[in-house]
Design a protein around this nucleic acid. Structure first.
Lengths: 151, 151
DNA sequence: CTGATATCATTTGCATACGAATGAATTTGC
DNA sequence: GCAAATTCATTCGTATGCAAATGATATCAG
């Protein structure tokens, strides 16, 4: 709508006219996430991004407690529990109670988990590549940097 | 780890060493989303971003069918149903079956929904502002543009 | 040593989110 | 005009994601 047209319809407030969902970060983040998820599940159908993140971080840091692992991938206690439960059911991780502190649940990659991770890692790179495909190299670096800044 | 140290441990593959969750778009998108959600719920506690998006789009386009509204904010039929159900329960939208096509469920903002939207819209701007606070003006524009490109 | 505090994990409740299956109603193709 | 295909909505199942409450264990303060 032109400025002239806006002036001609004073009954509609400027706040209403100028509000566009597309200009709000939450909306565009949600859509970008959506597209990434679709690409992820197309390539890695039998594992979700959070599950993959848990396995990847677990290989990085070796065994840790369940909550600590959650903290390392930004998941609260309730969420990481479900993720670990499902990975355990599928034999990708192993669990043990901590020797000194019986509150803790020690999580460890199983051999199968390690193999799965090795197999899927190349796909993860491909997914990131594919998600960023609409961007130039410079734009990709810029996007990653800016997202890291607000995350 | 230095390049020399890497060379000294050939048993660990380069793919493993170089894989960093932080370099993958899915992980940083998830974290950015998380921070936005926290800021949103701190300011608008009684409405979620999807619910807000539905109300905002509804005011933009006037009445539409439930699925059509979902399409306009990138939600599939199953998801938009839950959102509309909750908005309906709270009296923010009104529902009717379409006169000509009895399959369709026509969704409309209620007076209360319109008031709620008018009240919350300024907060939505503040939330976007706050989420993007770590960035300069130029960076904000850049981030929005790049996200729109991959979304 | 012991009561207060803190930490770890679990559970419950609620809200997205999507795939797949289903049923109802409409439109299309012939 | 009627069978086939399509569209709209609903339901079910699974998986995050977070807040709040709870229980078990560990640590700290006095």
């Amino acid at each position: 709508m032109s400025i002239a047209a806006k002036a001609a319809r004073p009954e509609r407030a400027a706040a209403e006219e100028d509000y566009r969902l597309e200009d709000h970060i939450g909306f565009v983040l949600r859509k970008a996430n959506q597209r990434h998820l679709a690409l992820f599940s197309a390539r890695i159908g039998d594992l979700t991004p959070p599950q993959f993140a848990a396995l990847a971080r677990l290989e990085e840091v070796g065994e840790t407690s369940q909550n600590q692992l959650g903290a390392l991938i930004a998941m609260d206690a309730a969420t990481i529990k479900g993720v670990i439960d499902r990975l355990k059911t599928r034999g990708l991780v192993e669990l043990d109670t901590h020797k000194q502190d019986r509150r803790r649940l020690v999580v460890r990659l199983s051999a199968k988990g390690r193999e799965t991770l090795a197999r899927l890692r190349p796909l993860a790179f491909a997914i990131t590549e594919e998600t960023l495909a609409p961007l130039t190299g410079r734009e990709r670096a810029s996007l990653m940097r800016l997202l890291a800044k607000i995350g």
